[in-house]
Simulated scan of single mutants.
Amino acid sequence: MSRDEAENGDSRPRSPTIKSVETSLEIVDELQARDGARVSELAEAIGKSKGTIHKHLITLLKHDYVVKSGGEYRIGLRFLDIGGYALHQIEGRQYIEPKIRELADLTGETVQFSVEQRGRCVILGRKAGQKGVFSRARVGKRFYMHQVAGGKAILANLPDEHVREIVSRHGLPAATDATITNETVLFEELETVRERGYAFNIDESTRGLHAVGVPLMGPDGEIFGAFAVAGPSHRMRGEQFKDEIPNTVRSVVNELELNLAHS
């Protein structure tokens, strides 16, 4: 099983791929994960010779996808331009960003908006309110959908067949001992989310972090993405967590859905 298959829980046969491109992408992933690295470190992590790794790095350096400082390579800002372009392709983004800021001001907590792409939950926008705490989330960060409130809110509004395909591809890996790792339990949770209209994340992605996720439906009636409000467990609890914050988010989302429908 390849490294990608092991990480994603996917052991199905893959279409033929170009190995040299895969190596370059592995290098990029390692540079991001390590916040920069030397040739020897990358060679050991990826399992390629230092000569091979160096050739890939020189190519990436030539095209500004990596930069070099001393003997260490880091991700280059060329990716920032590509990421910005990808983000601007999202229709309705101009309506979503003001709502992220509004919810951050209303709740005082950290708010993010995410969509599903290839079975992962991808953060498209994020803002910390007055009381917002640091978390692993950032624009472009991908999460396993079953681990986060926004991801579960999206899953609950996808056809069951699509959800099973996502589980088959990525598995149900645990981030904490509270993460759902059983498919039957996940479908039971998603049914509950559909009935009440929002999802909870209680220590499931990060211990001590709680979140509420509310789906955003598109004008065509299909799921567009989800807003999530996250904060520390000592604040996100009781009536505020179970009722007040979900109702606040749903009110803002309903207004946004009307705007999208008539835009």
Rank of each mutant, 00 (worst) to 15 (best):
D35G: 07
V133C: 05
G125W: 00
R38M: 09
Q32G: 08
E109Q: 15
G36T: 08
T110S: 14
Q117K: 06
G36S: 08
F79W: 13
L106C: 07
Y73V: 00
Y73M: 01
I53Y: 00
K19A: 15
Q112C: 13
L42F: 02
P98I: 07
E102K: 13
G125M: 04
I27E: 03
S69M: 10
R74H: 14
R38Q: 12
K99C: 07
E26G: 09
V115F: 06
K50I: 01
H54C: 01
G84P: 04
I18E: 12
G108T: 02
D64F: 08
R126I: 15
P98Q: 08
I90L: 13
V115Y: 06
E102L: 12
K62R: 14
G129M: 03
T23F: 02
K131V: 11
I90M: 13
G119E: 04
V66Q: 00
A104M: 01
A128L: 12
L103R: 05
L87T: 08
K62N: 11
G51P: 01
L60W: 02
L31M: 06
F79V: 00
R101I: 04
L61S: 14
A104D: 05
P98T: 10
K99R: 14
D81N: 10
L77D: 13
A43R: 03
A86T: 10
L103V: 08
V122F: 04
R118T: 09
K131C: 04
S15A: 14
G76P: 01
E30S: 07
S69V: 12
I53Q: 01
L80R: 12
A33P: 00
Y95H: 14
G71E: 07
L103H: 03
E72V: 13
I100R: 03
I46V: 10
R78D: 00
R78F: 04
I82Q: 08
R38H: 11
G76T: 06
Y65W: 11
K131T: 09
R78V: 07
